[in-house]
């Protein structure tokens, strides 16, 4: 009798759908809070959100981020406020995708999105520069640097609604 019960379990599983995710063809939907590759976001007017404060680099437990800031002018404006990130590099092989940079960012410039296909044949390729991380500007909006009206973008950190 136990034999029949045992084989009943086996045959029940024969009829089940296979569980294998056929990865390269079919990608499983990740959780919304999954942390993948970083993105540097832009405002709707095309200016970069990153102001080069390097708080992300300070928060990074693996020292994966390197930021060098430079001064903005109204003729060549990259981001609101005084400074922008001239160099912004993330070593994807150092980064542990903890999201502390995202939490530390005062302008919500850096965000971890869902790209996960990060394999490299060379360690040099793993260093993502500012150009690779920046989102493209929204449709019909020029990228940076922009020539803007004087005295409009004085504040580094815009008035934000409470995210919670």
């Amino acid at each position: 009798m136990n034999v029949i019960r045992g084989f009943a379990t086996t045959f029940k599983h024969v009829l089940e759908e296979p569980v294998t995710v056929q990865y390269p063809e079919e990608v499983k939907q990740f959780n919304v809070r999954y942390k993948g590759r970083h993105h540097l976001r832009r405002y709707d007017n095309g200016l970069e959100k990153c102001i080069g404060c390097a708080l992300c680099a300070a928060a990074c437990p693996a020292d994966a981020i390197w930021v060098e800031a430079a001064e903005n002018t109204d003729d060549e404006r990259y981001s609101p406020g005084e400074r922008y990130a001239k160099t912004y590099e993330i070593n994807m092989l150092r980064c542990i995708f903890c999201g502390y940079c995202e939490d530390a960012c005062p302008t919500q410039a850096i965000q971890l999105a869902h790209e996960f296909q990060l394999s490299f044949t060379d360690r040099e390729d793993a260093i993502f520069t500012r150009e690779m991380l920046l989102d493209p500007p929204p449709d019909g909006v020029p990228g940076t640097p922009q020539k803007v009206e004087r005295g409009v973008f004085n504040r580094s950190i815009p008035d934000q609604e409470d995210p919670y």
Partner: peptide, 26 residues
């Protein structure tokens, strides 16, 4: 790679199975 010649590096801490498969396909 200080001790053995590495062909592919996979980022992630730890990488998801998808990332490992992507590295293997690379």
């Amino acid at each position: 790679d200080e001790i053995i010649p590495v062909d592919v590096y996979i980022a992630g801490c730890p990488p998801r199975p998808e990332q490992l498969i992507h590295g293997i396909l690379t």
